[in-house]
Simulated assay, not measured.
Amino acid sequence: MTAERFTLDPGTRALLHDLGISVARVLRRARLPAGVFAHGPVTMTTEEYYRFWDALDAEAADPDLAVRIGRALSVEAFNPPIFAALCSANLRTAAERIAAFKPLIGPVGLRVTVDHTGLTIAVHWPGGPTPPPLLIVTELAFWTALARIGTRREVNPTRAAMRRAPRPSPATTSYFGTRIREGETDAVSFSAEDAALPFLTEDESMWNFFAPELRRRLSELEASATTADRVRAALHERLPAGESSIDAIAGQLMLSPRTLQRQLQAEDTSYQAVLSDTREKLARRYLADRTLPTSQIAYLLAYDDTNSFYRAFRRWTGLTPEAARGSGHLSPA
C-alpha cells in the first residue's frame, strides 16, 4: 500500500448525518479516531480510506447506499477541487479538471476520453487490495450527480460498467437510467450532447480563484512522490489502453524518455524494472478475480498475446497463471 495521504472532506460528516448513518459507529468500525472530523479536512492513507468505505457499507447494510449518496450529494458536500470543477462550462470540462486534481481527493486516478460517441470517465485504483464495491459504485454515482447538479437536468449515463458489477437492483437501475454491466474497467459514459450541456453553475472567475491553490497543492503532492511512483501511477492508467512503452509514459509525465530513464537510474531502478513489477502486482490481483480469463488479463496488462503473458508470469513466479490460481500464490509480491 502506498503511504500517500488523501483528503476526506469534512462535508462527509454532514452527508452521513443526512443519510441517517452514525459517524461515530462508522469510525469505530473502521478503527479510526473518534474525533477525526474535529479539526478540518481529514487525511487518510489508502488503507484507512478503504477501511472507512468498508465500514460505511457495513454500518448502513443497504445494497442501494450508493444511490442514496448520489441523491443526497449537494454543493455543500463537495470539497474545493470538485466545487471548483462545478464552475466549469460543462461536464466535459469539469471531468478534465477533476481528473487533473483527483489525487488531492482520494486514492484514484481518472482517464477522460472524448470521441464521437461522447464522454467516458474511467476510474483507476492503486495497486494492492481491491477497492470497496461501495466506493466504486459511489464514484460512478458521483459523476451522474455532478452532471445533474451542474445542468439542473435529469442527465443519465449512456453506460455504467464495473469489473465486478453488483447484482442489478431497481433502485440502482432507476438512478443511472441503465444497468451497471460487467466491463474491463470501472467507468461511466455520457452522450456527447449531455457532456456539452452548459453548467448553470459556471463561474470562470471562481475557477481562476481556486485553480492556483489547487495547482500548488498538486505540485507539493507530486514532488513528494518518487519518479518510480509516478511511473507506476501512469502505468495503471495506460496499460488497460494497450500502452506500455516508455515513450507513452514519459509523454504523460511530460518528460523525455531519456530524462525519465535518468531519473529512474538515480533511484536505482529502470523503466523496464518498474514496468515488470507493476505488471506482476496487477497480474496477481487480476488472477485473484476468477471471473477474469487469462486472455483478458494479458490484454489488461498490454501484452501482445497470451503467450507473452504466460512467459512473463512463469518468469516471476515459476508457475503458470492457472497453477497460481489453484495454489493461492496470489498475494502481492
Rank of each mutant, 00 (worst) to 15 (best):
Arg153Asn: 05
Glu182Gly: 03
Phe190Asn: 04
Gly183Ala: 05
Arg181Gln: 11
Ala187Thr: 07
Gly150Arg: 05
Pro126Asn: 08
Arg179His: 01
Glu139Thr: 15
Gly177Thr: 09
Arg159Ala: 10
Arg167Gly: 06
Ile149His: 06
Glu184Asn: 07
Ala192Trp: 02
Leu197Arg: 15
Ala187Asn: 06
Ala187Ser: 14
Pro170His: 11
Leu146Lys: 02
Leu197Met: 12
Arg159His: 06
Gly150Asn: 09
Glu182Leu: 08
Thr173Arg: 14
Pro129Val: 15
Glu139Ile: 10
Arg164Thr: 09
Leu134Met: 04
Asp194Ala: 13
Leu146Trp: 02
Phe142Glu: 07
Ala147Lys: 06
Phe190His: 03
Ile180Asn: 03
Ala195Lys: 02
Ala165His: 05
Pro170Leu: 14
Glu204Trp: 00
Ala161Phe: 00
Ile149Pro: 01
Glu182His: 08
Ala160His: 06
Arg167Tyr: 03
Pro131Thr: 13
Glu202Tyr: 03
Thr201Tyr: 01
Tyr175Pro: 02
Trp125His: 10
Leu135Glu: 11
Ser189Gly: 03
Arg179Phe: 01
Arg163His: 03
Gly150Ser: 08
Leu135Pro: 01
Ala147Gln: 04
Ser169Gly: 15
Thr201Lys: 05
Val188Leu: 10
Met162Ser: 10
Thr185Trp: 00
Arg181Phe: 01
Gly177Ile: 09
Ile136Thr: 09
Ala145Val: 00
Leu146Cys: 05
His124Ser: 14
Pro132Ile: 10
Leu146Asn: 03
Ala165Glu: 05
Glu182Phe: 03
Ile149Cys: 05
Arg181Pro: 00
Ile149Phe: 06
Pro168Asp: 13
Arg148Tyr: 08
Thr201Trp: 02
Ser189Asp: 03
Ala141Trp: 06
Thr201Glu: 05
Ile180His: 03
Gly183Pro: 00
Gly127Lys: 07
Phe190Arg: 04
